[in-house]
Structures are given as structure tokens and as C-alpha cells.
């Protein structure tokens, strides 16, 4: 039978969760070579909001945990196919075909490439929801030498800990909305990229190149495989192909599962500190159990016989 029982309300658990949430931030970048183009992202975000809802089945559900983007930059580098002119047939024979062909001369000396760079910060609304179960771990202080007694550990601040993590059962990320201007931003970025690529050419040469590549925007859209739905394309590219969404949910899951505990309880549990020549009073916690109910987080403990 437990010697101690402590119960905290859902509001208290919400505050504990907020503490974990506020410790979380990510700053990452990655890029992938897709052959005809490369794409990458630079992201930084933190979390805000998140309603904790405790369940009768010893779990908690967190909803509306908002991803607040501090940085959301998407970029892509596209190889424009080499543009060559000439190559026409000079002499063709019946049944044989072309027997003499003009040489092809290429307009660019190397494969040209263009880059588009989109600052999507503030244009993506997304949130996380998750369900988690309590995971109680007894963590021996890794810096504590073997055989060190509790009092020396107290003096050296090397006490062991009971740590209550909330171990996610699932974590979802929902992309609610890309701002309406994302499509326009992408089109403008492509326009600017083409313009930058050819800026030094006289108008007639730009027009000719654009006509042969033509139209360049469509060509680039084709290379990037942008369909009619730019939102869906961006979400697929960022989330699936570049793995950004996996990164986010994995980071959140890791954070909760073993980085930031909801509660930490020192073992032995401090009752009274040093008082003059008297040593501190501490209670050994032998067994600890945690249960979520619909209303409370209930912690029960048994006191051990020896420290």
C-alpha cells in the first residue's frame, strides 16, 4: 500500500506542460538533390498554445499546439536544359532521311541554373496534436560515482531522480492553410530568377531564349513538377520529399519522451535541509506510480526502509 498520494489538477498539468513547451525550439536546414533540381529549407520554430486534455484511460491528449515559425525559407536550384540552336537538316534523301545535318551551337557555355528563394515565414498555419501516456523513469545521476552514499550525493548535488515523461503514442502535424499569396510569391520568384539569369542580354536575345525555352516559367514548373495546386505541391515537397514534417514530429516526440520531463522528484526526497550541525532529512522513495484520470494526475509513492 502506498504511503503517499499526491494529486494535481488538469490546470496544474497544463502549466507543467507549458513549461516543457516553452523549452522547445528548433533551428534546422536540409536539402535534397532531386536530379533535375535541388531543394532545401531553413526553418526555425517554437511552439505556442496547446490544450491538455487528460483522459480516463491513463493518457493525455494535447490539441492545438501551434507551430510558430521564426524562419521558414524554401529554396530550389533548377538546371535549365542546355539551349542549342542549329542542328537543322541540310540534305535529306528519300527513304534514307537526313544525311547532312547542321551543327548545333549552344547558347550557354555550361548548363545554366536558376535559383528561387521563398520566405514563407508567416504564410503557413500549422499545428500539432498528440496523445501520450505517462512514462516514469528512475534516472541514476550519471555523474555519481558507484558506491557514493546518499549524503555525499546530497553534498555533491548528485542525487538520483524519478522523472515523469509523457511518452507520445502518436503525434500529428496538420497543415491548415498556406496563405493565398504563396502562389503569387512562387510565380514572382520564378520570374525574377529567369530575369536574373538573362539580365545582361539584349531584349531580342532574351525573347529568343524565352521563346525557345518556352515559356520558361512553364518549363521550370515542369522541372519542379508543380501541378495546379501550389499549396499541395509545397506541402508535399517540404513535408514529404524534404522530410520537414517528419523532422518536426520526431523532434516533438523526442522532446516529450526523454528530454524534458513533466515532473522530476529527487530520490531520496528532501524533507528538511541542513540545519546547523544536523544533517538533512530525506525520504527514500521505493515505489512511485503515476496515473492520469480525467481530472487529475495522481502520484502514489511508497517510502523505503533505508536510504
Amino acid at each position: 500500500m502506498a504511503h503517499l498520494t499526491i494529486a494535481t489538477s488538469e490546470t496544474a498539468v497544463q502549466k507543467l506542460f507549458n513549461g516543457i513547451r516553452d523549452n522547445f525550439s528548433i533551428d534546422e536546414s536540409d536539402s535534397v538533390d532531386f536530379g533535375p533540381f535541388t531543394a532545401g529549407y531553413e526553418v526555425a520554430f517554437h511552439l505556442e498554445g496547446g490544450d491538455v486534455d487528460m483522459q480516463a484511460d491513463n493518457s493525455i491528449v494535447v490539441k492545438e499546439l501551434d507551430i510558430k515559425w521564426d524562419k521558414l525559407r524554401f529554396y530550389a536550384g533548377i538546371d535549365i536544359p542546355e539551349l542549342c540552336i542549329g542542328g537543322f537538316c541540310i540534305i535529306a534523301l528519300p527513304f534514307v532521311g537526313c544525311v547532312l545535318r547542321a551543327p548545333e551551337i549552344c547558347i550557354f557555355e555550361d548548363d545554366p541554373d536558376i535559383g528561387i528563394d521563398l520566405d514563407l515565414n508567416g504564410l503557413l498555419t500549422s499545428e500539432i496534436s498528440l496523445a501520450a501516456k505517462p512514462d516514469l523513469q528512475y534516472v541514476v545521476n550519471p555523474a555519481r560515482p558507484a558506491g557514493m552514499n546518499w549524503l555525499d550525493a546530497e553534498d555533491a548535488n548528485l542525487a538520483n531522480m524519478w522523472k515523469l515523461f509523457i511518452d507520445p503514442e502518436w503525434v500529428d502535424i496538420d497543415i491548415f492553410d498556406w496563405s493565398d499569396i504563396v502562389g503569387d510569391l512562387l510565380e514572382n520568384a520564378l520570374d525574377n530568377a529567369i530575369d536574373d539569369l538573362l539580365f545582361f542580354l539584349p531584349g531580342w536575345a532574351k525573347d529568343l531564349i524565352s521563346a525557345i525555352l518556352g515559356p520558361v516559367i512553364d518549363l521550370v514548373r515542369g522541372i519542379l513538377d508543380i501541378g495546379d495546386d501550389i499549396d499541395e505541391w509545397l506541402s508535399d515537397l517540404l513535408g514529404v520529399s524534404l522530410g520537414l514534417f517528419d523532422l518536426i514530429i520526431t523532434a516533438v516526440a523526442d522532446l516529450l519522451a526523454d528530454q524534458f520531463p513533466l515532473i522530476e522528484i529527487e530520490d531520496p526526497f528532501p524533507i528538511l535541509p541542513y540545519q546547523g550541525s544536523l544533517i538533512p532529512v530525506k525520504l527514500p522513495i521505493e515505489d512511485l506510480d503515476v496515473t492520469f484520470t480525467e481530472d487529475e494526475l495522481v502520484i502514489t509513492a511508497s517510502i523505503g526502509e533505508t536510504l
Binding site: I105, C106, I107, F108, E109, D110, P112, D113, D196
Partner: peptide, 25 residues
């Protein structure tokens, strides 16, 4: 972003069968 243009293609104003330049053969 890079594009090294074959500038001779843009600048040429004379084409001569007896003095071959790019674009001719």
C-alpha cells in the same frame, strides 16, 4: 545562379563563308 553565355553568338554582325565564325558552316 549562373549562366555563362556564348557571347560570340550575340555579338556577331558579320557572317562570311570564307571566314567562318560560330553559327555558320
Amino acid at each position: 545562379m549562373s549562366a555563362k553565355i556564348n557571347r560570340h553568338l550575340i555579338k556577331q554582325t558579320r557572317f562570311d563563308s570564307g571566314s567562318l565564325t560560330q553559327l555558320g558552316f
